[in-house]
């Protein structure tokens, strides 16, 4: 059974995706890590290099939140129908 996940992008990640909100469909047994891989495929090289190293390992400098709660990539948090995954890149001052 498919689940619809809401996506929200901020700051520089938004410049790679071109949108600030979207939805993505995943299978029942697919979790956060699959969503990030699907995001990478959907939006192309800019977002791919933000999320992953050349060897496919995760680049650990983004903040991931599910339903406004921070989660760790390594935990591969399960997702439910209608959940929101927010992907934030670090920003600074100036």
């Amino acid at each position: 059974m498919k689940k619809e996940i809401k996506l929200r992008f901020t700051a520089q990640i938004k410049t790679h995706t071109g949108v600030d909100v979207d939805t993505i469909s995943i299978d029942d047994d697919e979790h956060v890590q699959v969503v990030l891989q699907k995001i990478s495929k959907r939006y192309g090289p800019g977002i791919t290099s933000t999320l992953f190293n050349a060897d496919g390992s995760y680049r650990n400098f983004n903040l991931i939140a599910v339903n406004q709660i921070q989660v760790n990539y390594d935990d591969n948090t399960p997702l439910n129908q209608g959940d929101e995954l927010m992907l934030m890149s670090p920003i600074a001052g100036g």
């Binding site: 520089q12 680049r59 100036g94």
Partner: peptide, 19 residues
Amino acid sequence: TACLSCLYPAQPAAWQRRF
């Protein structure tokens, strides 16, 4: 509380100084 490194374990690879 969490610290900045808890939020962002690694420094971003590319950050534009002017934004």
